[in-house]
């Protein structure tokens, strides 16, 4: 498997006359073809900003970038207009939380998918419609021929999300970006869409970056999980290691505070406090103010991302300390 995407020391800063937001503060990761990287984080952690940076979707005039994003060797952050428009939709596709906004309400689903196919492949009218039909079949939309003629508002939330996945895969992208695509869906529909994404990913051999705030969802779809906090990846590990032996106090806290089976009657282990204000660049570890294990050197300078073996990366000064005390 070759490196499909290389993100190195990505910084994203939003500058407005009123204030500056340091949304992403040095994020690095790789994604291979056929692999799913889950990015787990709470609101304001910079997970969506990181994802959108890969397509450079942020308003250019008030966004300051730093670092590098390379897709199959091409630098995205310095890419010209035409290369960028090739990138969007054709090499990299994206699915969003709210499918209603991804479709134009005045055209049918079939029209919009066929139109995209035609634009990117130069196929004729009839060919692109039959391709659109194939795509709807592929995402398991029942009676696809009829659904092609449906308008977005005539479909249920789950169907729209499937149609959006069909649209995203219409041009055989190498990388699929998923921004909380199942958050707005009902539980019984969410699991169907998760399974569909997992299946299509294998079938198409695409790389997927799946951003979510829900640990369960991340565990269902990801091969590796990166946990983000205050614009940084604090821990990146294969999914089994992340679930079995998280090393960063934040990842631990997140897992411990997520309610699941068998916690009834126990007191939940909440992380005290709230995430930091992103207006200032942190001088030390961003999590230090909420951390139970804070050390004097945590506030001196930000800890580095350290390799813990088995491609398990942790950004914590205590990462190599034996767990005995930490687990307590």
């Amino acid at each position: 498997m070759s490196e499909l995407l290389q993100v190195r020391d990505l910084h994203v800063k939003f500058v407005t006359p009123d204030r500056t937001v340091n949304a992403v503060n040095g994020v690095s990761f790789d994604v291979k073809r056929g692999e799913t990287l889950g990015i787990l984080g709470e609101s304001g952690s910079g997970k969506s900003v990181t994802l959108r940076s890969i397509l450079r979707l942020h308003p250019e005039h008030r966004t300051r970038w730093g670092g590098s994003i390379k897709l199959e060797g091409d630098e995205v952050l310095t890419m010209g207009k035409s290369a960028l428009s090739d990138l969007r939709g054709q090499r990299v596709a994206m699915i969003f939380q709210e499918p209603a906004t991804a479709f134009d309400p005045v055209f049918t689903i079939g029209h919009q998918i066929a139109e995209t196919v035609r634009r990117h492949t130069g196929k004729g009218e009839a060919d692109s419609w039959s391709r659109a039909r194939e795509l709807l079949e592929m995402v398991r939309i029942p009676s696809p021929a009829q659904r092609l003629k449906a308008y977005p508002h005539e479909m249920s939330g789950g169907m729209r999300q499937r149609a959006m996945i069909a649209l995203a895969l219409s041009c055989n992208p190498a990388l699929l970006l998923a921004d909380e695509p199942t958050t707005a869906l009902d539980a019984t529909v969410q699991i169907q869409v998760l399974l569909l994404i997992r299946e299509l990913q294998r079938e198409f051999n695409v790389g997927v970056i799946f951003v979510t705030h829900d640990i369960g969802v991340a565990v269902e779809v990801s091969d590796r999980i990166g946990v983000m906090y205050a614009g940084k990846i604090v821990e990146l590990a294969p999914v089994e290691q992340m679930v079995d032996a998280p090393r960063h106090p934040y990842s631990r806290g997140l897992l411990a505070s997520t309610v699941h089976d068998g916690m009834r009657g126990q007191r939940l282990e909440a992380i005290p406090g709230a995430p930091p204000d992103l207006a200032e660049v942190p001088t030390g570890c961003s999590f230090a103010p909420r951390c139970k294990f804070v050390q004097p050197n945590c506030i001196v300078r930000p800890p580095d991302l350290r390799e813990m073996g088995g491609s398990h990366l942790v950004r914590c000064v205590l990462a190599d300390v034996q767990e005995a005390g930490v687990a307590a």
Binding site: P289, F293, V294, Q295, I299
Partner: peptide, 17 residues
């Protein structure tokens, strides 16, 4: 290395005024 419990000073320094 044993893990020290945070001293009060650090905690105070960390909490943004």
């Amino acid at each position: 290395m044993a893990i020290q419990s945070p001293t009060v000073d650090i905690a105070a320094a960390l909490v943004r005024p």
